[in-house]
Simulated scan of single mutants.
Amino acid sequence: MTEQKNTNTNYINVLITLFLLGAFVIGGVIFYFKSIKKNKVKIIGISCWSSDPEFHRSIEGFKQGLLENGYVEEKNVKFIIKNPEASIDKQREIIDSFIQAKVDLIYSLTTPGTLVAKTLTANMKNPIPIVFSICTYPVESNLIASLESSENNLVGTRNYVPFSQQYYTFERVFPHIKTLGIIRRKGEPNSTYQFAEVKSHLKKRGIKVVDIAAVDLSDIKQQLKTKIASVDALFSTCDTLTHEGGDQIIAEFSVQYQKPSFACNKGGIIHGNLIGDIADFKAIGKISGEKAALILKGSQPSWMKTESPRDNYIIINKKTASALGIVFTPEIHDIAKEIITD
């Protein structure tokens, strides 16, 4: 009887040992594969929308935000960068290629480009996270539910500076405006929402608005020829048409007809507009990079806020000021983050 009891005890001990050993092995395997998954090189697909140098500065800032949070290019993160050259059809092809490549995250620039990315990834069982930038009105454009939470697979930064702030900066240089010409792309969401904001603000100030809603660059030229005599100054809005050459046309008309202009894009001031209180694309790109790093570490886009520029960025063009006979005050010089001299 004692011998039988000892045999049973030994059997049970063997079973316990085998169970513990099995649990240890399984735990080790799970830890190993989790470690591989955690440490694998992340792949990010980037669609820069166009060849605008400012868009490339956005990508520089995005990479910097990732780097400062532990993601080093070619070490633990790789980038697939593609350019649709402002074509919706090419953007669809690019986003499809990112989906087929099973990238870990997509970085998309501009509202039109990001709307495509949102639509195509929404059909996925597990939508790829999208971090965006240079989307002025992401809520109004139906990219996200609110700035507090997207309620979907998107989060990012908007290049939004309140028009009241932009106009105040311009007014300090060129006051007493009675009529302002607003140049924008006809039908583009950002353009439509910004125009509504501009009209609302200027109506309170008793300032008349002349709407120059163009379909392409040729249309901008044609409309400016017929309407510029009726305005005191010009404003270049934050849309893709101004990015794609509109700013330069506006600047040329501004100098030729001696009508000061201000812009909400840095490229506008570089190309010859007088002044701008703008969003620095590299700075907001860096914020987007910080958000991408959190997502790659396990956060969900809907957990995070979509942000606006954290700092004011005033840029002035002294060459244009000289051509217009305008002298910037020492105060404007002091607050300017960047001065264009040639």
Results as ranks from 00 to 15, higher is better:
4 Q>V: 11
10 N>L: 15
12 I>T: 11
14 V>I: 13
18 L>C: 15
18 L>F: 14
22 G>P: 00
22 G>T: 11
24 F>M: 12
27 G>R: 10
28 G>S: 05
34 K>H: 10
37 K>R: 03
39 N>H: 10
43 I>T: 12
55 F>D: 06
57 R>A: 11
57 R>P: 04
59 I>G: 02
64 Q>F: 11
73 E>K: 12
78 K>H: 10
79 F>V: 05
83 N>P: 03
86 A>E: 12
90 K>N: 15
91 Q>Y: 05
92 R>Q: 15
93 E>F: 08
96 D>L: 11
96 D>P: 03
109 L>Y: 03
110 T>W: 07
111 T>D: 01
111 T>M: 04
111 T>C: 02
126 N>R: 09
128 I>R: 03
128 I>L: 07
128 I>E: 04
131 V>W: 10
133 S>C: 08
135 C>N: 12
137 Y>C: 03
143 L>Q: 13
156 G>M: 01
157 T>N: 04
157 T>P: 04
159 N>V: 05
161 V>F: 00
161 V>W: 00
164 S>W: 03
167 Y>E: 00
168 Y>L: 12
173 V>K: 03
176 H>W: 04
177 I>Q: 14
180 L>R: 08
182 I>H: 04
183 I>N: 04
183 I>H: 00
184 R>T: 05
185 R>S: 14
190 N>R: 05
192 T>P: 01
194 Q>T: 08
195 F>T: 07
197 E>F: 00
201 H>F: 14
203 K>Y: 03
207 I>Y: 02
208 K>H: 08
217 L>Q: 08
224 L>S: 06
230 S>Q: 15
231 V>S: 07
232 D>Y: 12
232 D>T: 08
237 T>W: 00
240 T>R: 07
244 E>M: 11
246 G>P: 07
248 Q>C: 05
249 I>G: 04
254 S>H: 02
256 Q>G: 01
256 Q>V: 08
256 Q>W: 07
260 P>M: 02
265 N>A: 13
269 I>Y: 02
275 I>P: 13
275 I>W: 12
277 D>F: 13
284 I>H: 02
285 G>A: 11
287 I>R: 08
291 K>E: 10
296 L>Y: 10
298 G>K: 01
304 M>T: 06
307 E>H: 05
308 S>G: 08
308 S>T: 14
315 I>K: 11
319 K>G: 01
322 S>I: 06
322 S>N: 12
326 I>D: 00
329 T>D: 04
330 P>Y: 11
330 P>S: 09
330 P>K: 08
331 E>L: 02
332 I>N: 01
335 I>F: 12
336 A>C: 08
338 E>R: 09
338 E>L: 09
339 I>F: 03
339 I>H: 07
341 T>I: 12
341 T>Y: 06
